[in-house]
């Protein structure tokens, strides 16, 4: 049942983005403790290496990020995270990706280490 629904939506409207619960707003400066559980990528600081926990978003968005190396369980390092610019990530260590803040808000990560 679930699979059938999933498939049809994939074929007919691959661009549709489901309505998301509102995570903390990445366009605002992060205040207070960010917690130890999964947090939006944009809450991570410069130089921090984090682990991709979940990507909230439609199939197309997820697929694009997977193709670019942001797969579930992989680590990324924040090369740059300055308001209000996009983030710069080191992906698969050697690649550099610029990522919009609204997108970074939908990628939940868990911290691994601080360098």
């Amino acid at each position: 049942m679930f699979a059938s629904r999933f498939r049809r939506s994939a074929v007919s409207q691959p661009t549709s983005e489901p309505q998301l619960p509102s995570p903390p707003d990445c366009l605002e400066e992060c205040t207070g403790p960010c917690g130890v559980g999964p947090m939006p990528l944009c809450m991570a600081g410069r130089g921090e290496t984090v682990c991709i926990h979940e990507i909230q978003g439609g199939r197309q968005l997820r697929q694009r990020l997977l193709d670019l190396g942001l797969n579930h369980g992989s680590t990324v390092r924040l090369v740059k995270n300055e308001m209000p610019d996009p983030l710069i990530l080191a992906v698969k260590e050697d690649g550099r990706l610029a990522l919009g803040r609204s997108m970074a808000q939908r990628i939940l990560v868990t911290p691994t280490q601080r360098t």
Partner: peptide, 12 residues
């Protein structure tokens, strides 16, 4: 309409 996702490779 939500802003389109921005993701772009930064070549060296």
């Amino acid at each position: 309409q939500p802003p389109a996702p921005f993701v772009m490779e930064l070549p060296p």
